[in-house]
């Protein structure tokens, strides 16, 4: 539904050149909620703004719903943008218009329907986002969560197929964030909307996204379904989800410290017990986490192994054969996301 190919964006300000996007290939399937996770300054907003061409990429191709946006003239581009809704961190509602007036704005811009048809559509949308009683209120009188609901209703007004979300929950508290994320999830399910959202919060990705990518310094360092990424032992996403127990665990605990990853089909605890018996190793459990991701358990165990090196190596190989991944040493380094 959304595809970017070799997307590059360079900014030059006062003679200094910044590469905000450095060859991004992104592919979002129809009906999917896709999250792009990255630290501040990674290029997330630039990427999102390149999708509806608010920002012209320096080079590369953007395709939405099969249409190559980067090849369109101004009038066609405006028409294409009407099929792409967008919501923002700071809501960007017009203070001079009521809630209903804000939601009607995209319809006025596209010249959709008569005044009466537009107000019927607005009422329907406000009902849908749970603000049926706020039509005549001004945005300044609403809470952050209510404003974002208005912004979502506005983004949906023209029946878009795609919704872009730029840190839509970053200005909201935890409870409100959860309710907005639940609403986004509902949009994907009930309206078949494809949602591309960017965030710096792993929890947002974990809570609503089917798939995700990690953006760092203008490059996608990994992408895939959230379940796969979290289950993969070497993924940046997983490294963040399962924070290491100590900066330098080997020095802190002695022996050989390893991190073992396992998913639903493997039984981590049982395997560790078996490892100690079979290879006569002294196994200490330093830390362990099991999280339910996309309905299946995904776990990490941090172990300190003591014993002869060859038996340790054999033991680790045995673990790998039984569906438990042993993380390479460099995966321990905390990955900045």
């Amino acid at each position: 539904m959304i595809e970017t190919i070799a997307l590059r964006k360079e900014y030059s300000a006062d003679g200094r050149q910044t590469t905000a996007l450095d060859g991004v290939d992104l592919s979002v399937a129809a009906g999917e909620v896709y999250g792009v996770l990255g630290a501040s300054g990674a290029g997330k907003s630039t990427l999102l703004r390149c999708v509806n061409l608010l920002e012209r990429p320096t080079s590369g191709t953007v395709r939405v719903a099969g249409e190559e946006l980067t090849a369109l003239g101004p009038a066609d581009l405006r028409a294409a943008r009407r099929r792409i809704g967008m919501i923002f961190q700071h809501f960007n509602l017009l203070s001079s218009r009521t809630v209903a007036g804000n939601v009607a704005l995209p319809l006025e811009i596209s010249g959709t329907g008569t005044r009466r048809e537009r107000s019927a559509r607005v009422a329907e949308l406000l009902e849908y986002v749970g603000l049926g009683d706020k039509a005549e209120a001004y945005p300044a009188t609403l809470s952050g969560g209510q404003r974002q609901r208005v912004a979502i209703a506005r983004a949906l007004a023209d029946h878009p197929r795609v919704l872009l979300s730029d840190e839509a929950t970053s200005a909201l508290d935890a409870d409100t964030t959860r309710s907005i994320l639940a609403l986004l999830r509902r949009l994907a399910g009930e309206l078949g909307l494809t949602i591309l959202l960017i965030t710096h919060e792993l929890d947002v990705v974990r809570e609503v996204c089917d798939s995700a990518a990690v953006l760092a310094a203008g490059r996608l360092v990994e992408s895939g379904t959230v379940a796969d990424l979290l289950a993969r032992p070497d993924s940046v996403l997983a490294a963040q989800a399962f924070a290491p127990v100590a900066a330098d665990p080997a020095a802190a605990y002695g022996g050989r410290v390893v991190r073992v990853a396992f998913t639903g089909q493997a039984d981590g605890q049982a395997a560790v017990g078996e490892l100690a018996r079979r290879y006569e190793l002294d196994v200490r459990l330093l830390a362990g986490t099991v999280q339910t991701i996309a309905g299946q358990p995904v776990g990490r165990l941090d172990l300190a192994l003591d014993g002869p090196a060859d038996r340790i190596d054999a033991g680790l190989a045995w673990l790998a054969d039984h569906g438990l991944a042993v993380l390479p040493d460099d995966a321990w380094a905390e990955v900045a996301v």
Binding site: L54, R78, R81, G85, F88, N92, L94, I109
Partner: peptide, 13 residues
């Protein structure tokens, strides 16, 4: 607020 202009542009204004 430039964000409002951006929102309108995103609507195809």
């Amino acid at each position: 607020d430039p964000g409002l202009v951006e929102a309108a542009q995103a609507m195809g204004a």
